[in-house]
């Protein structure tokens, strides 16, 4: 719980420092998108400090490139460790 409060306090400080630079753009769209992203990232950080397991994007990429990656791996191992 202390970690969550820590993240929230840190986010508040960052928001306090950072928001004026966004405000300068004087665009409501910018402010709106900024808030959404900020809340999203704060949420992710809270989940992270609570040690909620995340799906690993690297695995997804591995899945996509498996058809070429696996044969290449075998090729490399054959040539390099000859």
């Amino acid at each position: 719980m202390i970690k969550v409060i820590g993240v929230l306090v840190a986010s508040a400080v960052v928001y306090k420092l950072d928001y004026p630079t966004v405000k300068k753009s004087k665009s409501n769209r910018d402010k709106f998108v900024y808030w959404i992203f900020f809340l999203f990232v704060v949420g992710i950080m809270i989940l992270y400090v609570l040690e909620v397991p995340f799906p690993n994007p690297t695995e997804w990429i591995k899945q996509v490139y498996k058809p070429v990656g696996e044969p290449y791996k075998q090729l490399v191992e054959r040539i390099v460790n000859q």
Binding site: V14, V22, S25, V33, F38, V41, I44
Partner: peptide
């Protein structure tokens, strides 16, 4: 996202 400035989302992105 059709934002006005390049810098708008930099801070959330950095922590992400």
């Amino acid at each position: 996202l059709k934002l006005k400035s390049v810098q708008t989302l930099t801070t959330p992105i950095a922590f992400f």
